[in-house]
Nucleic acid binder design. Sequence first.
DNA 1: CACCGATGGCAAT
DNA 2: TTGCCCTCGGTGT
Length: 269
Amino acid sequence: MPEGHTIHRLAAEHQRMFGGRRVRATSPQGRFGEGARLLDGLVLREADAHGKHLLLGFGEDGERVLHVHLGIYGKYFFGEAPAPVGAVRLRLSGGAGYADLRGPNACEVLDRGEVKVLRDRLGADPLRADADPEVAWRRISRTRTSVAVLLMDQSVVAGPGNIYRAEVLFRQGVHPLVAGRALGRERWMGLWEDLRVLMAEGVRVGRIDTVRPEHTPEAMGRPPRVDEHGGEVYVYRRAGLPCLVCGTAVCADVLAGRNLFWCPACQPS
DNA sequence: CACCGATGGCAAT
DNA sequence: TTGCCCTCGGTGT
């Protein structure tokens, strides 16, 4: 679940549930007891997301900022009752219900200066209005690093994860191993615009759907199916299966420790 | 009940 | 490049 669209949804959910209200903060699991005490009884002033980072401003002037990064395991549970299962690192509760956080990579209270340091090392977030793809392009156009690695580098582009990476490269017909400096400005802008569209849709519906209407199983005369992760995708985790567009077997490899998927025919090198 | 994998990211090597 | 963080659900015994 946790790519950038998920975090933007979490920010909105916190705002809706706790915005402008005094909240109770506890750490049932105990590992965030000290941090929870710093937040307990304060008012949630602002909920923001930058890439995969959730930033919740508490207190009279929003000075105490809760920073949460879900990593690969982290998960939120929202409800009127506490989470039914789990080692809950942080529990926020208020009149509207509970927000239980499990297994985050980061859960800490920052001051304004520390938040600035964090934001300064994050690249352009396709879901943020203040994002500037030109800054990212300056980095991309100068490096031999592959576009697949660059799309996962949060200091270049903040928010996309392994699924959006695989899918946007497929949709734009770009081979994952094309070097940044060989990509070309037009293809970069194509990737960027597609990320904006796909991720905005991800925020709207709460899952990752990337298959164009003309390529859905129904349109292609095939039986309907649902991918394991809950959305409809072209290549992510479809190694060895036929490409939804051309039928060629989807390729898979590990690059920089992450699974990579692509169609060798639709994404020529 | 053990083991595995996962949509991240960091430090150490 | 490897290992570790940390959690849960799915799978196999």
